[in-house]
Design a protein around this nucleic acid. Structure first.
Lengths: 117, 117
DNA sequence: CTGTATCCCCGTGGATACTG
DNA sequence: CAGTATCCACGGGGATACAG
C-alpha cells in the first residue's frame, strides 16, 4: 500500500492519512464506532454507494493495520462481523475532532453563501 | 471540488477530509504551522517531490476554503507569502493528533516487523 | 520568482457477473 | 450472505515547457 517512494516526510500525520487512505475508510470507522459490531451486509446498507468489492477491500486493509477485527461465524448462511479493535479505538479522538471541524466548516460555508444572496 | 453527488454522509468528518483532500495539503499545513509565513519557493524546497503546478493548485484550494492566506508583495522579482489564517489554526489540534497517532503507528509496525525476524 | 498551459499516466474505485 | 473475478472509466497528480 504505497510503500513505494519512501518520502519519509517529517510530518507523521501524513502516515496516518496514508493508513486511512481510501474513499470510505473513515465512514466505515464512523459506523463501527456507533455500533460495536456490524455484519458485512449491515455496513453495505449503512453506506449507500459503496460496492461489495470496495467495501471488502477497505475492510481488509483496515484489518491488516490492526484497526478492525473480522470474525467469521461458521454458519449457513455465513455470518461475518466487523468490529473496531482496542487499537482502532485510538482513532476515535481524531474522528471526533474531524467531525466537529467538518460541522463547523459546513455551517461557515452556509453562512457565507447566505450573506452574498 | 466534488460537490457532485450529494452523498450527505451522516459523518461530518468526511467533509473535513474532503476539504483537505489533496496529496500534499496536510504537509503544506504542517510547514505553515512550523513557520508563521513561507514563500512559494520555500514551500517547494521543504516539500521534496511536489511540482510547481500541484503546489499552486493545492495552495489555491486551501486559500479558497479560508485556511491559508496569500499575500503578494509587488516587488521585482515577485514575492508571495503564505500563512495560516486564524480559521486555519483550528485545524492544528487535528494535525497534532494525527501526528502523534502516526508516530505510534510507525513504532508499532516497526516492533511487529522486528518480532518476526 | 511565481506562477500557467499542455499533455499524459496510472491507481483507485465503480459496474457487473459469478461462487462457496 | 459474503465475498471473488474481470473489466473499465476517470481524474488527480506528474513532467515539461513557457510567461509576466
Amino acid at each position: 500500500m504505497s510503500s513505494s517512494h519512501r518520502e519519509d516526510s517529517p510530518c507523521s500525520a501524513v502516515s496516518t492519512l496514508q493508513v486511512l487512505s481510501g474513499k470510505w475508510k473513515w465512514l466505515i470507522l464512523y459506523h463501527l464506532f456507533e455500533h460495536p459490531s456490524l455484519r458485512f451486509s449491515e455496513l453495505m446498507r449503512r453506506i449507500p454507494g459503496i460496492t461489495q468489492r470496495v467495501l471488502t477491500k477497505q475492510l481488509r486493509e483496515l484489518e491488516e493495520e490492526g484497526i478492525v477485527e473480522r470474525t467469521v461465524y461458521p454458519e449457513v448462511p455465513p455470518r461475518v462481523e466487523y468490529a473496531i479493535t482496542p487499537y482502532g479505538q485510538s482513532l476515535r479522538p481524531i474522528l471526533d475532532l474531524m467531525h466537529a471541524w467538518g460541522l463547523e466548516h459546513l455551517r461557515r460555508k452556509a453562512e457565507r453563501a447566505h450573506q452574498e444572496s
